[in-house]
Nucleic acid binder design. Structure first.
Lengths: 190, 190
DNA sequence: GGCGGTGAGTTCATTCATTGAACCTGTGGG
DNA sequence: CCCACAGGTTCAATGAATGAACTCACCGCC
């Protein structure tokens, strides 16, 4: 289930690695070959927030359709997402985060914390708390109070004062309320 | 010294934010506007490793000159690096990491750890240890033993078994040996 | 005082990636 | 039969990245 990736990524079409910047002997460079392209980390973010369907990514990100398709494909190839038929409606399908995708949460948490501290227009956009104890999770998604890495299902996201309380698109609206990471997004048919 | 960035980034040339993907109300998206372009995070990585001079970035990264100049400019504008005249040779200058740049270490550490775990061809490339106690630093750069975030000066980087022990370029050679983060890179004139 | 070397860039033509709009295709409902 | 919807693909136009060549200020030297 968690077999290494090297074969797949390193030997596509005979080129040395992904596309280029990885004659680099460096784990960071290798990682960025997979998730470093434009939009990719935002797709993963949405997936961790519970978004699963093509159209939901589309409207929430405002990404061009072709790019979204390409990125989802890359992420599936890299083992970050898994594409599978929807349980209820067999002709639709959904992209769900794998174990390897969940492992990107510390990265996203660190990026998010940097943004919060750097663009300090005061009001935070979202809080992420350890649901069991209410403490805000730390830089890598760990709980400073309990001292352990919080399982994603136990991370509760809630809107901060900087977040628009009435956004236009339905995905943003669904992602507003207090909810857990990974909790599948279900859009109430208006 | 750590004034917020919003003004600078948000209003360049009248466009809404950076370039695009940030009608997004999201700290991650805002962060990626600054450090999400190709090469940028590798430049920051090198800067944290102690690289300071244009030519050192150039040979170590294998980045096109024009792109390097652009990225350094972006990072200076964003307050991640500071450009200043070299102490010893007044006509040269160097790019040094600011406090805000140091704050990107948890992000880079998390990316690096994901790469290590994902491309598990076995041999790690580098270790990062808390110099005082020898423990490997955790996902966000904290010390699991001491429980606190290790100051960058106390993070010791050492080569792992997967790293080429005799690389071609002098910057890679200088970055091999056990050394501290942020320790300025000095190339011994061969 | 001319000469080559170095650090730190710019300029420019080519290639590659991204964008947005339009098109396609399978199915499910009325 | 017709329309809508999910999940794409195709295409032309734009914008960014690449690599090679060029600039330019200074520095040491003989």
């Amino acid at each position: 289930m968690n077999e290494p990736l090297l074969g797949k990524v390193a030997t596509v079409g005979g080129m040395a690695l992904g596309k280029d910047y990885a004659a680099q002997e460096c784990s960071i460079a290798r990682t960025l070959e997979v998730v470093g392209e434009r939009w990719t980390l935002l797709v993963v973010r949405d997936a961790l927030y519970g978004v699963r369907r093509y159209n939901d990514f589309l409207v929430h990100l405002g990404i061009p359709r072709a790019v979204l398709a390409a990125r989802l494909q890359t992420l599936v190839d890299a083992g970050v997402l898994e594409k599978r038929p929807c349980a209820d409606a067999p002709r639709r399908h959904e992209y769900v985060v794998t174990e390897r995708g969940r492992a990107l949460w510390p990265t996203l948490r660190a990026l998010s914390a940097w943004g919060r501290d750097t663009f300090a227009d005061g009001r935070p956009l979202r809080y992420f708390r350890h649901a069991q104890c209410g403490t805000e999770v730390g830089l890598a998604g760990e709980c400073p109070a309990c001292g352990l890495l919080v399982p994603l299902e136990d991370v509760e996201m809630l809107p901060g004062p900087g977040l628009d309380p009435d956004p236009a698109d339905p995905v943003s609206r669904a992602l507003l309320g207090p909810r857990r990471l990974l909790q599948p997004l279900r859009l109430d048919p208006v």
